[in-house]
Design a protein around this nucleic acid. Structure first.
Length: 568
RNA sequence: CGGGGCGUGGCGCAGUUUGGCUAGCGCGCCUGCCUUGGGAGCAGGAGGCCGGAGGUUCAAAUCCUCUCGCCCCGACCA
């Protein structure tokens, strides 16, 4: 491709809308342009990268027994009503009507459609297992699209669905995908690691997320340097409090203290000169509309997912001020567990508190010297808090580290969550009808591109791993007007193409600085600079983008040198 | 949805408080000259009616009302 022809409008300045490096570079390097919030058009360079990623995904999916299909984006409401998710999915689903006022949605995911497809054609265990995948646009009306392509409302996802006859078969499918994912991300040049995760709205029990570690990542993960355990903080269990976490057991009698305007943990601590772990937070929630009090230690963060699981409710909301006042008889900030008439559920660390300060259920008052065991009757005690750095690893007990990450893929075992309501069944050897055991496995393809940039860029621009780079090399004659340089450049361009090296020839009549800057910004892994100095010796400069190392290479040898590096 | 901010040539911004604009600057773009090892220089030029709609006024980018869009922080997710 000639640079003068390439539709790659680069930007000198950083667009005001972009915060993340990946977002900025995708715009500046001319990979994409925004259409509307969370929706992007991919330009030639961006689309080439995407296709490289998709091809890697395809190859690994095919190796792992997958067969590619293309499923509808426009999906009928009936299917979603069958699975129950038409009601459950909420505002995040783009819903449309046809001219006859029939309901449809733009598929946010494809479990329903694929299950409906398979149920109509699969009759016998002899047809199993089946692993079907597609690379397709998905639509989710995100509450807040952000970070460019990382959280879009339209995005490209690879999703594979496995159908097995039993759990054991599903385990094999799951493992095959898990291994394929590791290989896919490795080939994309990503440092991605699987972490244990929560299954969220998709459902199912076993699931791993593949996280690309990066400071700008949206998710927080804990990992154990000792044993390699890793999990999303949403999921990571907290160990029961060790002995030293249990507060002093010689508790004095209850004492009500006047604490004017001290409604937050910080204010109380300052006021009473105590530490946050000596306080208990009492948070009122509405679980499917019913109030519950949740008790967490002052220095701990409540994990709402864990709470929701314990409460087994479908809607969990923090109570509004009016409800809090009704339930506690006090202003927000002074709720306490003593004397409440609603159920109290306590985090295990909070339940161990023996001399704590709690709200007195009276505005501007707290109660101190509370022993949970002595003074309260709890409805339930459970692991409700969010795991944090330094906590004991649930696998080996060593201290955990934390890191931020961007989720690029997730694998789920679904069981019969969809096959049962949608009646996707088969006959086993005994002629008995059974539900298909399913798994689903997604990779955010567009997001993966951004993740690669997050891990492979510097102040000057992108530095693509060869495997996903839009082109392998850019040839930059210092002056394209110079006959000798131009001729050398054009010959080299031909040679490289004949060797299967994907090359761009920068034939613009620009000054060298402009061409170098663009080359660095776009991120070609290699640059060949043709200038008068080296040309005199029949050599050109070969520059590696990642390391910026320069080497002089014989013109006649560049082709084979590059060919070898690209394929190694 | 709650909180904060912003919409002025393709991009980045100034002007808005204290109406007076024939709307300005840098970059980019076009033409010519010149230049060619890290986003050159000179000269000439094109391009906006100030997100949109109403209103106040002799006069509105600037004031008022409504509306649309975008960005950031928080609750959701690949």
């Amino acid at each position: 491709m000639k640079m003068s022809q390439l539709y790659a409008p680069t930007l000198r300045e950083v667009p005001a809308e972009a915060e993340l490096r990946s977002h900025q570079f995708m715009l500046r390097a001319g990979l994409m342009r925004k259409s509307t919030a969370g929706v992007y058009a991919y330009l030639p360079l961006g689309y080439r990268v995407m296709q490289k990623v998709m091809n890697i995904v395809r190859e690994e999916m095919n190796k792992a027994g997958g067969q590619e299909v293309l499923l509808p984006i426009l999906q009928p409401a009936e299917l979603w009503q069958e699975s129950g998710r038409w009601a459950d999915y909420g505002d995040e689903m783009f819903r449309v009507k046809d001219r006859n006022k029939r309901d449809f949605c733009l598929g946010p995911t494809h479990e329903e459609i694929i299950t409906a497809l398979v149920r109509s054609d699969v009759r016998s265990y002899k047809q199993l297992p089946i692993r079907l995948y597609q690379i397709q646009n998905k639509y989710r009306d995100e509450i807040r699209p952000r970070f460019g392509v990382i959280r879009g409302r339209e995005f490209i996802m690879k999703d594979l669905y496995s159908f097995d006859r039993d759990e054991a078969g599903c385990d094999l499918s799951y493992q095959a995908m898990y291994d394929a994912y590791k290989e896919i991300f490795r080939r994309c040049g990503l440092d991605a690691r699987p972490v244990e995760a929560d299954s969220g709205a998709i459902g199912g029990d076993t699931t791993h997320e593949f996280m690309v570690l990066s400071d700008s990542g949206e998710a927080l993960v804990v990992h154990c340097p000792a044993c390699g355990y890793a999990a999303n903080v949403e999921k990571a269990p907290c160990a029961e409090p060790a002995a030293q976490d249990v507060l002093d057991t010689q508790t004095a009698g209850l004492e009500k203290v006047h604490t004017p305007d001290a409604g937050t943990i910080d204010e109380i601590c300052t006021f009473l000169d105590i530490e946050p772990q000596q306080c208990l937070k009492t948070v009122i929630y509405l679980a499917d509309g019913k109030p519950v009090a949740v008790l967490v230690r002052g220095d701990h963060t409540l994990n709402e997912l864990k709470l929701q699981k314990e409460l087994d409710c479908s809607e969990l909301l923090i109570a509004d001020a009016r409800t809090v006042e009704e339930v506690t008889g006090a202003a927000v900030g002074f709720a306490g567990p003593i004397g409440l008439s609603i159920p109290i559920i306590a985090d295990q660390a909070a339940a161990a508190a023996a001399d704590a300060v709690v709200g007195a259920n009276q505005t501007d008052y707290h109660t101190r010297h509370v022993s949970v065991q002595r003074d309260l009757s709890l409805w339930k005690t459970a692991d409700l808090r969010q795991c944090r750095e330094g906590d004991a690893c649930p696998a080996c007990g060593q201290a955990l580290d934390t890191a931020r990450g961007t989720e690029v893929g997730q694998v789920f075992k679904l069981g019969t969550k969809y096959s049962e309501p949608l009646k996707a069944t088969f006959l086993d050897e005994n002629g008995k009808e059974r539900s298909l055991v399913m798994g689903c496995y997604g990779i955010g393809v567009s997001r993966t591109v951004a993740a690669v940039i997050e891990q492979h860029s510097d102040a000057d621009g992108i530095s693509w791993p060869i495997s996903v780079s839009p082109y392998h090399v850019v040839i930059v004659p210092v002056s394209f007007k110079d006959d000798q340089q131009r001729q050398t450049a054009e010959e080299l361009y031909q040679t490289l193409q004949n060797l299967g090296v994907e090359a761009v020839l920068d034939d613009r009549l620009e000054r060298p600085g402009v061409k170098f800057k663009d080359a660095d910004l776009i991120g070609f892994p290699y640059r060949i600079t043709i200038g008068p100095k080296s040309l005199a010796e029949n050599k050109v400069e070969l520059i590696e983008r990642g390391t910026k190392t320069v080497e002089l290479v014989d013109i006649a040898a560049v082709g084979s040198v590059l060919q070898e590096r690209i394929h190694s």
